[in-house]
Amino acid sequence: MATLSAEFTLPLRSFALDLALDVGRTVALVGPSGAGKTSVLRAVAGLARPASGRIALDGETWFDADRGLFLHPDERRVGLVFQEYALFPHMSVRQNVAYAGKERADELLERFRITSLAKAHPTELSGGERQRVALARAIARDPGVLLLDEPLSALDAHTKAAVRGELQELLRELALPTLLVTHDYEDAASLADEVGVIVDGRLRQLASPQELVAQPADAFVASFTGANLLRGTASRAGQDLTRVQLESGEVIYSTDEAEGFVSAVVYPWEISVGREHQADSALNVIEAEVRSVVHVAHRVRVQIGPVIAEVTQASVDKLGLVTGARAVASFKATGTRLVPYA
């Protein structure tokens, strides 16, 4: 698979974007709004010209400040899906897709299940449909890199869950280097192999979602990447409970309804830690080895098996939590949310 490497500085209104990253599979940049996330995509797409640096897709150099090289967006093999999709309002769905590539239009309409909408205009479509059209249009150009700007934020909560699943499947099928930006850590963690936290134009940390939660580089990253995401398979368990067989071997329960592949979302501060299993209301109990103990601001993040719990220093001292010790993490089924994972 190709690799996009981008290393550049781009002066923005109140700060300068300054980052370096290699995108092999799917990388998500998360950060608060105004962090410069969209500008990263604009620079890679050629819609903004960085002051210095270099952007290249394998052997193809798209931008090189030292050589004075700057390819325009139409000269870069890039598929950019805009936040509000930017579908051409004066064209039908089919015309939108064919705009980027006539030959593949019908095939792509079929693939994205929008053949029946071919003659419709963007204003007549739902949010999810618009996104499918925007993706089909971006792919019609046969890009070497896919750029997604807040792919899920324009959707209502109900549509979002379904679209997230579709998107995961699509990204896996396409096997293109993909750079997406979002302000929602959960979206980032569910879609990407690597997540970068970006604040004021700088990349604070770039790591797998698990690593970010377990070992945040700083307090901001810690607060931003709140949740544990545990992948597994969901099935109905009766009594309004869903049973999730985790990939790591454990079984947990949730009050959310789901079936099939899911990510269970548990916030570290909702997990209590002990040395032994105690009978209480928490339905989910994971007994495992302590893998890491990391201090974050005034709290301590303890990784027990697959989950990270957040506790006070006093608790760590009282329980004698050190790497390698056995510990029990327990959390409630009501505090365990399930999001689809394709």
Partner: peptide
């Protein structure tokens, strides 16, 4: 954004003008 979208879809400035800016 529509003009920018046209460019990222492979259309040069002239095609962008006649197919996107002018009709809109």
């Amino acid at each position: 954004n529509l003009v920018a979208a046209s460019r990222t879809l492979g259309a040069g400035p002239v095609r962008t003008f006649f197919r996107v800016a002018l009709p809109l």
